[in-house]
Structures are given as C-alpha cells and as structure tokens.
Design a protein around this nucleic acid. Structure first.
Lengths: 347, 347
DNA sequence: GCTTAGCACTCCATTTACATGAGTGCTAAA
DNA sequence: TTTAGCACTCATGTAAATGGAGTGCTAAGC
C-alpha cells in the first residue's frame, strides 16, 4: 500500500513512545491494547508490515515485536513528537546552577553536569570559540632560542597562552614595549578583528612605520595566526551510557569511549551543529560515524553577544525521550548564553 | 604445617606466573607437569592446600584450580619476582618519545601514552607539583568588584592563573607596579620559597615598609596562598581496561571510570606514592578503595632538579606482568625526569 | 474494500536432564 | 614424606522439551 495515512502515523508514534519507555520490541497485541483506536492485533499487524516495508520498523527476529529504525525516529522527531515542558524542579535546578556568577570554565562545567545528571545520559559542552572573544590584555615573555611566550587574556578573565618562534631574539624590555603598544591599540577588540587589523597593517606601506612598530605587528601576527587549535569540549556522565543495553557491548563501549577521548569525531559533529541555531538532532547513522550508530545527539548552540560561540548537547542511545530532552537542551543553551554574556558590573 | 619452605615458594611462584599469563585457575596437574621438581599432582595438592590455608591462594569453587590472592602477589613482587629487562624496541621507543624537546604538558601526555600503549593497560602521570617550581614572571590584572586576575609563569613556559579577592579595588597602574616589584624580587625563586619569604616579610615591622610595598606583599600573599588546588593527572588508555574480564563487569567498569573522572581517590593514591621514591606498588585491596580491589597500581616518582614533583604509573588488573611492568615504569620515570629537567640552552 | 478471527508456524528463552572433565580432599600404601 | 587411588564436587556443554510471544496468511464478516 505504501501510504502513510493518519492512522499508521498514529500507530507508529505510539510504538515509538512505547519502545522508548520500555526498551522492548513492541508487538501488535500490545499496541492494540494501548491504542484508543479500537483495532484488532491483526489489523495492526498489517499496518506494521507496511511500516516495515517503508523502512520505519524492523524485527530483531521473526517472532519478536518491532523496533523503530533511525528513519522512524527522524519522522517522529520532525513531525510526530509532542514536546513536554521541563519539569519545574529540573527547571529551577538549571536556573539555580546557571545563575551563579563564576569563571566561564566553571559555568560550562556545571552546564555539562546538568545535562548529564538530569538526563542520565552524557552531557557535552564545547568551549567557546576563541575567535569571537574579546582581547583584554596581551603579554610577551622571552624564552630561549628566539622563542616567545605569548599570554593573552580574553573576556575579563580567560587566560590563554602560546609559544611562537620568532626570527630573532627579543629582550624582555623590547617585548614589554610591544605588549604595551598592542594593549593600547587592540585591547577590547575581538580576536578576529585584531587579526584582520594586524594583517591589514602589514599590508600598508611598511616604510611608514618604524622598526619597533613593525616588530610589534609581526609578533602580533604570529601570536594570532592559526588560532583555532585544540578545539575542545567538556564531557560528563559518559559512564551513564554504560547502563544502556544497546550500547553496553564491550567492544562497542570501548570504541565509544575511545571516540570521546580522541575528540576529533565528536568535535566535527558538534561543529556542524554550530552552523544552525536552534535545536539540532543527529539520530543513529545520520552522524556518519559507525561508533555513533546506536546513539543520538541532541544539541543547541549558545552565544555570547548574539554571536554563536559554542554548542551544548546530550549524547544517548537512539532510544531516548526526545520529547523531554529537546526542550531541556534548548533551555539549557539559552540559560548558558545568558550566564556567559558580559555582566553589568555590579556596584 | 604452616611453613613456607623453598619448595612451596617455588611452586607459588610458578602458579602465579602461570596464572598471570593464562588468566585461568591453575590446578595441581598443570603445575606438576610445568615444574621441573618431579612431584606428583597429589603432593602439589598438599602444598597448595597449605598455601591456601596461609592465605596465598583461593579457589573460585571446589573443582576449579587455584588463584593467587593479593597477599600472594605481594609476596611475589617483594621476593619471588625475577624482573625482565625492557625489550629493546620498547626501550628505544621510550627514549625516542621522551627526548623530543617540547612543552611539559606535551611531554607528560606522551609519557602517559607510552605507559598505556606499551602495557596495554592504563597509564597515568600527575602534573608536576607547582610548589616546587620556579617563578619566572607574575602579572596582575584588575577585574570588576575588587577582584584581581593573577597570571604567573613558572619554569620557563608554564602559565597558571588565579583570581583573588582583594579588600579594595586596584588600578591597572598600581597593579603593574606591584607586578614589577614582585618580579624584580622573586623571579627565579621556587613558589614555596616565595611564599615563605612573603610571609616573613609580612611579619616584619610593617611600619618600616611603605604602603605600596605593603600592598604588593599582601597581593603576593593572596596570590600564593593555598596554592595546591586541583592537583591533576593525565590518564590514557583507560579503555584498555575494558579488555580484562576481571574488570569488565558493567557495574564495576562504571565505578572504575567514575573514579577516574572524579580523580580524588586516584590522586590520593598517587600522592602516597610520591612520598617514597623508587617503584611503588599497590596490589588489589591494598589501595583501600573497593573500586580498585581488582586492580594494581605500579608507580614511580619523577623529579625536576632532584626534587620529586610528580608520579607516573600504570593501572591494570592485579593479574599483570609485574616483572615487565616494574622495570618499564622505573625507566619511564627516569627518562621523564631527564626530559623535564631544565635544559642547557642550545646555542 | 477494510477489518478481524483463526491457525499454523517460527523463533527465542527457559528448563531439564545428562554427560564430561577438571580438580579436589582424603586415605592408605610405598 | 610422597604418591596412587578413589569418591566427590562443581562448572561447562549439549540436547531435547516446553512455553510463550509474535508473525504471516487466509478466509470469513462487515
């Protein structure tokens, strides 16, 4: 028949909901009893057979019930799902924990822990992109062999550092001058802006600026170039994933945890989520990594000064309570954005 | 009988070695065949019964062979073991990876990876204690609400930072002065020495020093006090532990990984190892944490300038090849010390 | 045309029974 | 003190029987 009428959609929805809550393959009889449409198991079997043919269901074996496929979850999430508002005790917990003023690292850590604790799955929050962040102060220190240690402070209180190789050795005094100069000019600008500006300055007629300025600009260029190194994230509650039988195979767990440790694949996925805003979902195979075939990832991006700077989300088995997770991730992202935004200085 | 004669020790040794390599309970017949002492299984059974009574062996059930207890491993490690020198290809690998000059963080990361990769267990290296490290440069930046961001560089190129709460707001200029003053006086001293010296200075007649020096010393005191926060370590290859059936129970794995994430228990253990130098071993229950009942920890401390500043080691099942792991950990610690020691500046 | 009752069939999970084999403890003889 | 022998225990493996859940199909009912 190959038609997705209202009834089959409704049945599919019920099946998915039931499977999400029970974790067991669902048979026709169960569904028949559950549903308010008074249909016999036989009828439901017919519908199910159709849904299976269309790729939404699949049987682990002949005489088991049926299980939703990734496409089914996708359909479910896109058009069948009825989101449930966050429980008020959870909501207030999120509010509470994300309102304490604190270092950004700490806030992000708390956000990640919130995500994992309230969902009993894994929570992940990327560190804010440096690019879009304000330079507050920069400092240069000489090391041996014409290397220079650059320390820069962004966003009030985040400290980063980097070692650059220069063409000649600089003295402490020289470097201090350079630092003073750069601080005077660039402090308060975003790193991206600084880089662009430095680049432009270099293109200008180099004769017109004196040697020490040239040095300064050169150093700044080195300091700011190639400045998206180890993108990173804070992951918590990975161990919660061990509880899910879908993921608990020894080999599978090992792969999963290795992926978490190596980070790159996860980063790639999260990066993709950053492009869109609003809640974004990868279900099972959609991620493209076999390790995550049994997992779903629900994310939302967060921002500072209305610029998207990072992503946060929840990783769990495809069989997760999307209707709760989605609004939860959404609101957490919003509150994290609020918490990270530059605060009016209190008196 | 309760006597540990030569013969029973020899048999115990063989049993342990065999169990370590096979992972299966060892029966009397196996041992009889293996041993060059021509003894019948029956005799061996008698010996084994004695060893069991003395707490060195234990049977999983009546008709299984026997398994060494933690005490047996302890005895084995302390007096029976014949260490095997590191295989030359492993040795050269260690040499190679620990000779690349690089940031300390990177070297430590590589050391940890070496430990895990070459043993196929988990490798751990603590970050060097800050206490014992040289202050190179210090810098103060004002934040809102009378808070000050302190950035200090130690050991050539390690950057740390900390936020302190002051009693009054300081201007950028004031803080710069303070920084200059402290740099002039304390740069090059160990953090511990700096703290002590600052403390002493405060005790001196406060009238004799002027207000701005007093400010400086006060700030320094704040900056350096309570300065062993998040002791931390680099852990790699945790996932290797999933391969060992002794540890692979779901619940057990979860506890283990949680312990790794929370860090405190592991830190406590590692800290104890720091007190002794040379190779230190915790076997099974000796650690005192039930999570590690099935694990052994082989560590050795490493030093900078002949001061012990950290510990490195291997975590694995009690059933591990101690005779290889011990020399390996030993040499890795020595080479790490060498790699971290201040380098003669190359021309 | 959909819906449904009925039925044969499939497959998994659980149980039972039984054989096997490894290993033990004990005793009595060498 | 060592060892051979023997009865006993227990985990493991295999095979068959059973029960239950669920299916697909067909034919009858609305």
């Amino acid at each position: 028949m190959q038609v997705l009428n209202d009834r089959s959609l409704q049945l599919l929805k019920m099946l998915i909901e039931r499977y999400i809550s029970d974790g067991q393959p669902i048979g026709s009889r169960t569904l028949s009893k559950d549903s308010d449409l008074k249909l016999s198991p036989a009828t439901i079997r017919n519908v199910m057979a159709d849904l299976e043919e269309m790729g939404f269901l699949h049987s682990p074996h002949t005489s088991a019930g049926r299980i939703p496929t990734a496409s089914a979850y996708r359909l479910f999430v896109d058009s069948l799902l009825t989101v449930k508002p966050l429980e008020s005790k959870d909501l207030s917990r999120v509010h509470l924990e994300l309102s304490t003023r604190d270092g950004n690292k700490e806030i992000i850590g708390r956000a990640s822990r919130l995500l994992s604790e309230l969902t009993q799955m894994a929570g992940v929050v990327t560190l804010p992109k440096r690019e879009l962040v304000c330079l507050r102060h920069i400092e240069f220190l000489p090391l041996s062999n014409a290397r220079v240690l650059v320390i820069f402070v962004t966003n009030e209180q985040e400290v980063h550092n980097k070692i650059i190789q220069t063409t000649r050795a600089f003295s402490t005094a020289e470097l201090q001058q350079v630092g003073n100069y750069l601080n005077a000019i660039y402090s308060g600008h975003s790193l991206a802006a600084v880089r662009e500006s430095v680049f432009k300055e270099l293109q200008d007629d180099q004769q017109r600026i004196n040697q020490s300025l040239l040095d300064a600009v050169n150093l700044a260029q080195l300091a700011f170039e190639d400045e998206n190194p180890k993108e990173d994230y804070v992951l918590t509650g990975e161990t919660n994933l061990m509880e899910f039988s879908e993921l608990a195979g020894r080999e599978h767990l090992k792969n999963l945890f290795n992926a978490f440790n190596q980070k790159q694949d996860v980063i790639y996925l999260l990066d993709q989520c950053m492009k869109t805003n609003g809640v974004q979902i990868f279900i099972g195979e959609e991620s493209g990594y076999k390790v995550f075939d049994q997992c779903s990832l629900v994310t939302s991006s967060y921002s500072i000064n209305d610029e998207v700077v990072g992503v946060l989300g929840v990783i769990g088995p495809t069989r997760m309570a999307y209707e709760k997770i989605i609004p939860f991730v959404d609101i957490t992202a919003k509150l994290l954005s609020a918490a990270l935004n530059p605060k009016p200085t209190s008196p």
